[in-house]
C-alpha cells in the first residue's frame, strides 16, 4: 500500500468543509437538489459516448494500421477531419446537419432526440482521439510478437485478438482513462444541444434565480467530484490489470 499523498488529505478536508457548509445552507441545498438530475444525465451521456468512442476508436485504429490503402485511408481521413474541427463545432454539425438529414432520410424520429445527438457527437469526436491511442498502443508491441503468433499458424485476426491487443490495452490504459475524464468534462458542450446535463441545468438555474455564485460553485464542485472519482477508478483498474503480469 503506497502512502496517501498530502494533497488527497487536503482535498478530503476541504470536501468535508464544503459538505457541512452545503448541508447548513438552504440556498446550496436547493441548488444541489435542482442539479442532481443534471449530474445523472452527465454520467449517462459520458458513459454512452465513451462506449461509442471505444468501439469507433478500436475499429478506426485497426483500420489505420492496415497495409491496404483502401482500408487505412478512410480511417486516416476520419481521424484527421475530426481532430481538425473543434469539438463544439463538430457537435453542432452533427446535431443540426447530420442527424436531421438522417431523420429525414430514414424517417426514424429518434435521430432528433437530443441525447442521441449528444452521444453521437461526443462519441464520434472522441473516437478519433481513441483511434490514435489504440494505434500507438498496437505499434508499441514488438514485431516479434506478431511474427511468433503468425508462425504458430494463427491468422492476423487471431494474432491481434489473443496476442497483440491484450498487451496493447495494458499499455494504453492510462491514456484511455485520461480521455474518459476529458470526455466527462467535454460532455458539458452538449448543453448547447439542449441536453439537460449538469452545465445546462446550471445555466437554467442561474437564469431563474440569478444566484450565479452559488450555482456555478456547485456545478464546478460536482464536476470535480466526478473527475476525481474517475481518476481514482482508473488508478485502481491499472493496479488490478498490472497484477497478473507477475
Amino acid at each position: 500500500m503506497e502512502r496517501i499523498p498530502w494533497w488527497a488529505l487536503l482535498l478530503v478536508a476541504a470536501g468535508l468543509f464544503v459538505a457541512v457548509g452545503i448541508q447548513r445552507s438552504e440556498v446550496y441545498r436547493e441548488t444541489l437538489d435542482f442539479l442532481a438530475s443534471g449530474v445523472l444525465l452527465t454520467l449517462v451521456l459520458t458513459v454512452l459516448s465513451y462506449a461509442l468512442a471505444l468501439v469507433l476508436g478500436l475499429v478506426a485504429g485497426l483500420m489505420r494500421i492496415s497495409n491496404n490503402p483502401w482500408i487505412s485511408t478512410p480511417a486516416t481521413l476520419y481521424v484527421e477531419v475530426v481532430r481538425g474541427v473543434p469539438l463544439l463545432v463538430l457537435l453542432l454539425y452533427i446535431a443540426f446537419v447530420l442527424t436531421p438529414a438522417l431523420a429525414d432520410a430514414t424517417g426514424i424520429g429518434w435521430w432528433r432526440n437530443e441525447i442521441v445527438r449528444g452521444v453521437l457527437g461526443l462519441g464520434i469526436g472522441y473516437g478519433a482521439y481513441l483511434a490514435e491511442v489504440y494505434r500507438a498502443g498496437i505499434e508499441s508491441i514488438p514485431r516479434g510478437q506478431r511474427e511468433a503468433a503468425l508462425s504458430l499458424g494463427m491468422s492476423y485476426a487471431q494474432a491481434m485478438r489473443y496476442v497483440i491487443l491484450p498487451q496493447a490495452l495494458r499499455v494504453v490504459l492510462p491514456a484511455l482513462g485520461n480521455d474518459f475524464i476529458a470526455l466527462l468534462k467535454d460532455s458539458s458542450l452538449a448543453s448547447v444541444l439542449s441536453v439537460q446535463e449538469l452545465t445546462y441545468s446550471g445555466n437554467l438555474l442561474n437564469a431563474r434565480t440569478f444566484r450565479a455564485f452559488e450555482t456555478y460553485n456547485m456545478v464546478a464542485l460536482l464536476y470535480l467530484l466526478m473527475t476525481l472519482a474517475g481518476s481514482a477508478g482508473v488508478r485502481l483498474l491499472e493496479r488490478v490489470t498490472a497484477g497478473g503480469r507477475g
Binding site: Q145, A148, G244
Partner: peptide, 8 residues
C-alpha cells in the same frame, strides 16, 4: 533469437 514468448 529473441524467444518472442507472449509476456501476458
Amino acid at each position: 533469437q529473441q524467444f518472442n514468448l507472449f509476456p501476458h
